[in-house]
Design a protein around this nucleic acid. Structure first.
Lengths: 116, 116
DNA sequence: TTTGATACATAAGAAACTGATGTATATTTG
DNA sequence: CAAATATACATCAGTTTCTTATGTATCAAA
């Protein structure tokens, strides 16, 4: 499990890029998907995720549609056009940032072969 | 310039690893060094840095010594033993995290050759 | 039927940063 | 030489965002 500080810094990037990848997801599904795909190393809490989804919707980056599942209502989110642009932008930023940090920490770095 | 959220998430990592690399630095020097080495893409603010240095010292990760430069007092920081361990640990965590995120965002990723 | 999973939401408190302000010395520049 | 800029520390009100807990409700499984 990674520190919450690291996760905080990329929470928006994770959520938006996941939606870009999968098209349409609901909140609970996002938490489960991230947990599974990272082998439990990243676990989003609902208290952090739901308010974020609401903020992103308010900012016009996400759209929602409700769907009835039995007697329950499930809320699906998908990217708007600007949400899609933002997702790409955040992913590119993370990659550049990651490289910058690695350069900065250079003497600490393990050999590139490690990442192969 | 990277988003403050990304920087926040790695601020401690940056500061501790820089001290591990250079042995001994004072606050202002850290801001300038990070700015130069990242071509201005990461600019630490003093309002974020000084309180962090104080916290890290209080946690026993850093030690200080004051030095008189003319009539001014300069405060040098260096890692304690546990600070050194923490630096290594945070760098390793960042690298693993970075890989995890890249895997998660996979369809967005540029080819590994990009990073060579 | 009770436990755990699914699925949403909110809110008090905590943590950390932003941006401003303050103090003071040193250097550079017009 | 006066003013502006750089060096160098520090603090703080306000903001943002997360943590942790709580709340509601349905559904499946034991």
């Amino acid at each position: 499990m990674y520190s919450s500080e690291l996760i905080k810094g990329t929470l928006k990037t994770i959520v938006l890029s996941l939606l870009a990848k999968r098209g349409r997801m609901y909140g609970y599904e996002i938490t489960q998907c991230v947990k599974e795909e990272t082998d439990g190393k990243i676990q989003l809490t609902e208290g952090a995720l739901y308010p974020l989804l609401h903020r992103l919707e308010a900012e016009g980056l996400l759209e929602t549609e409700k769907e009835n599942i039995g007697k329950r209502v499930r809320k699906y989110y998908r990217l708007t056009e600007s949400g899609n642009a933002e997702a790409s932008s955040l992913v590119a930023e993370f990659q550049a940032f990651s490289k910058t940090i690695n350069d900065l920490l250079h003497p600490f770095l393990l050999k590139p072969s490690y990442y192969a």
